[in-house]
């Protein structure tokens, strides 16, 4: 839907500009109204408010870049459709759709629930009718599995997760190219990847904190103790839904500084020897997360 509106705008602007030139536009206000600048800026500001960005200038720059690429795609794409009816144009078209979908997904952090959900919806709709040019499938069937998988891959790599770390996660969420992905599955996949990226970044920070005092690689015992504590807390938080508050309380008790100090001190005195490098730590932390992700079926 958003796409249609943007397309229309791109189609409208040039004639409007041309008109304004010939008519020597009476007032500035009229010129702005004709060029649709007000709507353009309002849209940009709305997006920015929704995303609550830290970097307004960067955000607006990206936003307008995206709009520009959309209007390019709008004009270029339609020519392509007529000329070579699919394949090459279709591929480029698809890539553009994917980029735009990713751009929408990047707009809001997943903790801004409603904004994030809106953006996921927009991205889903964008990808869903990307079968467009050939027109064979039409929309409504769901996003193609290949596009969905590609979206997740991009999200993870943009989130700073090394491909080797995200591979087991993507294996669980992965869809075949011929499969049609419904919205719920898409949303779950996207959210999981976004959360996972945050999780891995946090794990990397944690590693730095654990080796902080003496800048040496973390001893295996210590690393295992820290991850073991996390695992233990997550295990308590499984079980019946009704007692969620209690479970949370219990988990937080297990993750208290006192408990950790105790776990680390015991690990240091008696635990496996050797050291653990950052990658190994990251993998161990990732495993804790990934084993809890449901395999898509």
């Amino acid at each position: 839907m958003a796409d249609n509106k943007e397309k229309r705008r791109s189609a409208v602007i040039p004639p409007a500009m041309a008109d304004s030139k010939t008519a020597k536009c009476d007032s500035d206000r009229e010129f702005l109204a004709q060029a649709g600048v007000g709507e353009l800026l309002r849209g940009a500001i709305l997006k920015m408010v929704e995303a609550r960005t830290d970097d307004p200038i960067g955000f607006l720059a990206d936003h307008f870049c995206n709009l520009a690429s959309v209007s390019d795609a709008g004009t270029g794409g339609s020519e392509g459709d007529e000329m070579n009816n699919g394949t090459l144009g279709g591929r480029a078209h698809e890539q553009q759709r994917l980029n735009r979908a990713l751009w929408h997904l990047r707009l809001a952090h997943h903790s801004h629930r409603s904004a994030f959900s809106n953006n996921v919806r927009v991205a889903y709709d964008l990808l869903n009718d990307s079968m467009g040019p050939s027109g064979s499938d039409g929309d409504g069937g769901g996003v193609r599995g290949g596009l969905y998988t590609q979206t997740l891959q991009c999200l993870c790599s943009e989130g700073g997760v090394p491909a080797s770390t995200s591979a087991p996660l993507l294996h669980r969420l992965h869809c075949q190219d011929h499969e049609a992905v419904p919205y719920d599955v898409f949303r779950h996949g996207v959210l999981t990847c976004a959360v996972f990226s945050d999780y891995i970044r946090q794990a990397q920070r944690l590693y730095a904190e654990v080796c902080c005092p003496d800048e040496e690689p973390v001893s295996r015992a210590l690393g295992m103790a820290v991850i073991g504590t996390l695992k233990e807390a997550l295990e308590t938080s499984q079980g019946s839904e009704a007692r969620r508050t209690l479970r949370y309380l219990e988990a937080s008790a297990k993750l208290s500084p006192d408990q950790l100090a105790q776990a680390m001190a015991t690990a240091q005195t008696r635990g496996p020897g050797g050291s653990m490098d950052a990658k190994e730590f990251e993998n161990a932390a990732a495993e804790v997360f990934i084993t809890r992700v449901k395999v898509l079926s």
Binding site: H188, E209, L230, Q268, R292
Partner: peptide, 29 residues
């Protein structure tokens, strides 16, 4: 010679919370 337990604790709590977010948003679809 051990890292500060409170910073380690707050990091792990974050990771725990993120995992919980993922788990509570699992879909049945």
């Amino acid at each position: 010679g051990l890292p500060d337990p409170s910073t380690v604790s707050s990091s792990i709590q974050q990771m725990w919370a993120l995992t919980e977010v993922m788990q509570t948003n699992q879909t049945t679809a």
